[in-house]
């Protein structure tokens, strides 16, 4: 049985279990958390501007007197969703690019690979910043921009793996008995690509979250007038930082670190499942 086996391997990977636990806690905290809080805490409350963490406000308040805990919870929802959807978009683009490159072969493959190399060497952060700085920003735009600029790594992996798979006997056999390319992709390539893909995608979600928070921090991501995100909470807290209101910057950042760390730990665990040979040399 395949499923219990990989679950077993994952379970033996202690760090990955910690990561999974962390991610589950953070997701629950972000998705279900706001329901447990008093609804009034999200209102402006100018009497409690920049209140330090206390019993009433566990993590303090921001400069409009809103409860930071509530903001971080709802911010987590946004940051996690943006990271997830942007990476899914990148995965779809990367998979298509990689599979087309591998299937076409010959000079198409060479040219596509060449372009991929070039794209990988472009400092994407600059392009992202330019796109975000020109024109209005919205959540959809952030997702699109992150997705459209982070697919190159995935495409490279998919192309390499597909090339290897296309040489295997079972796919050669499938080609010989006259399967259409569509059938080969759906029935043979994609299921076998899944395991190496899941590792890069996991790490990709972490990177997308980092990118989103960085953009939002620079006021180039999710507009703080629409939804709170971990990045724009910090961006709002910047002005209060030098006067000593450390909590507005410290807590959202900690959430980012814990989330991305959890995701990366899960990625490590998955890598060990996918690639048992490496497990021997690299714990």
């Amino acid at each position: 049985m395949l499923v219990p086996e990989w679950l077993h391997t994952f379970g033996k990977h202690r760090l990955a279990c910690i990561g999974l636990f962390g991610l589950v806690v953070i997701s629950f905290f972000s998705i279900a958390g706001p329901f447990f809080l008093d609804g009034n805490t999200q209102q402006f409350n100018l009497e409690n501007m920049l209140a330090a963490p206390s019993n009433e406000y566990l993590l303090g308040t921001d400069r409009l007197g809103r409860d930071l805990l509530w903001q971080i919870m709802s911010g987590g929802r946004i940051s996690l969703w943006v990271g997830l959807i942007a990476t899914l978009l990148a995965t779809v683009i990367g998979c298509s690019y990689g599979i087309i490159s591998a299937l076409m072969g010959n000079w198409v493959d060479r040219i596509l690979l060449y372009i991929l190399d070039i794209i990988l060497a472009i400092p994407m952060l600059l392009i992202v910043i330019v796109v975000q700085a020109l024109g209005e920003s919205s959540m959809i735009k952030v997702i699109l921009v992150i997705g459209l600029t982070s697919w190159a790594n995935i495409a490279r992996l998919v192309r390499t793996e597909s090339c290897r798979l296309l040489q295997t006997t079972f796919i050669q056999a499938a080609i010989t008995i006259g399967c259409t390319p569509f059938q080969i992709i759906i029935r043979h390539l994609l299921p076998n690509l899944l395991s190496p893909l899941i590792v890069v995608v996991t790490v990709g979600v972490g990177n997308a979250i980092l990118l989103e928070t960085t953009l939002s921090f620079l006021n180039l991501g999710i507009p703080s007038t629409s939804y709170p995100s971990w990045g724009n909470i910090m961006s709002n807290g910047m002005s209060a930082l030098l006067s000593g209101s450390w909590w507005i910057v410290v807590f959202p950042g900690l959430m980012i670190v814990i989330t991305v760390l959890s995701i990366n730990l899960i990625g490590d665990g998955l890598r060990d499942i996918v690639n048992p040979v490496q497990r021997e040399s690299r714990t």
């Binding site: 960085t214 921090f217 910057v249 950042g253 989330t259 760390l261």
Partner: peptide, 18 residues
């Protein structure tokens, strides 16, 4: 090193300043 790659640069910068 795992924590390092999960830390956003701008946040660590703010912490260092703080």
């Amino acid at each position: 090193s795992l924590i390092s790659s999960a830390t956003p640069a701008f946040w660590l910068g703010l912490l260092l300043i703080l």
